[in-house]
Design a protein around this nucleic acid. Structure first.
Lengths: 220, 220
DNA sequence: ATAACCATTTTTGCATTCAAATTGGATCCT
DNA sequence: AGGATCCAATTTGAATGCAAAAATGGTTAT
């Protein structure tokens, strides 16, 4: 197994919740599960720690990072900034073919909205956001976006949607597509920021913090 | 030596140019220079590779990453986005004391400008930009900013300044301080973006790409 | 009964070791 | 002579082994 593959596998386990937030990560167990020795696993853990997915406690091993409300807010804020930037750049660089593709996915998404198929809706939604990032043509931006969204993905795509909120989101997406078609970078960036801000409020309101109370109580 | 210290030391060697861009990194040599064994060094190299500072060639070792013009443009673009976001957030959250501190550093910077002391000028400049990032109160943002700016630092703070350009930069910094004092987030973000865009043009014009032609010629 | 202390066990961190891949060079063939 | 091929030497990638630190459990003393 290649180094990047080990990192990917463990990252997936963390993001899927197979290793739940806050859980200790016993090296030996993971090693035999992945059929590798401790050395490459430890290398992967250090990389994931640098990404913020794993917390290293010197001489006391590693644990899956836990997101507080503050972390979530911070991540969403940065995500807003990155998407806003991507929106502006995308409007300068996106091709007509790419716009057409986004439009197609958007239409499919609206269809799924009509069917109240949340899973498929979210898939299209994510595809659109990623298409905008890609269209920005900036690999550095793509990399940071990927890393930031990975950490909030569970919250972002698991939070239940109220009918009211869902309708608004679809409406915002209409505006997103429209701005993209008009290549209105400034407009697009504003819409994207509002869109993300709403999403953030929704998520935070749902109380998706990954903090466990007993950890706070250690001092008692 | 702690893991983070190893990462820091090697990172510093890369950023200072002690290990020049494109240079191969022989593990054994670095090991004895740092007085550690290969295991912790390799862990550090993987982390730095994830940061984009090192390029890993499977079974063929690692080399210091080299920035192309495109990389530089991409990094500056993202940096613009991050600073713009920081500017907006900072205006919402910065304290009067912090503003006063920025104002003081700004005054010192203007003084250094008067003395044509480029080194000290750059020090103050960097302090101001970092203060704005810090004032945004978003550790995720700070982390990404740190990582992005580290990679362009040499270009950013080494490019020679024309008198014309230097005067403009100082003028822009006046506007930055002014917007901060007025807590005009939108205004500040615009000024910061323009400021960075000018810096980027300056750097790219100076041709600071770290590509070496003979590498392109390998296919011949 | 509770708290503190000590021995045991487990786990981490790093050095060493071993196998596999790559590189450089010498040899051989055309 | 030029080029391909094979072999030695170096270097990488991963597993194992060893020392140190921390968690655990049991015992004792208050």
């Amino acid at each position: 197994m290649l180094h990047e593959e080990v990192v990917g596998r463990v990252r997936a386990m963390l993001l899927d919740g197979e290793i739940p937030p806050g859980a200790r990560i016993p090296e030996r167990d993971l090693c035999e599960k992945l059929q590798i020795s401790r050395t490459p696993l430890r290398e992967a853990l250090k990389v994931l720690a640098a990404e913020g997915l794993v917390q290293l406690l010197p001489n006391r091993g590693s644990r899956a990072a836990r997101l507080t409300d503050k972390d979530m807010r911070d991540l969403f804020e940065v995500c807003q900034g990155l998407e806003a930037l991507a929106g502006e750049l995308a409007c300068e660089r996106i091709t007509d073919a790419e716009i057409a593709e986004v439009a197609a996915v958007h239409a499919a998404m609206v269809q799924h909205y009509g069917d109240r198929d949340l899973l498929q809706y979210y898939r299209c939604n994510r595809t659109i956001h990623e298409a905008i990032i890609t269209a920005a043509g900036n690999p550095v931006l793509s990399g940071l976006y990927e890393s930031v969204t990975a950490r909030i993905r569970r919250a972002r795509y698991v939070t239940p949607m109220t009918p009211r909120r869902w309708a608004l989101a679809v409406q915002e997406h209409e505006a997103i597509l429209n701005a993209l078609q008009r290549r209105d970078g400034v407009g697009l960036s504003h819409i994207l920021r509002a869109h993300l801000r709403h999403k953030r409020e929704e998520v935070l309101q749902a109380g998706f913090a990954e903090t466990e109370p007993q950890d706070q109580a250690r001092a008692s």
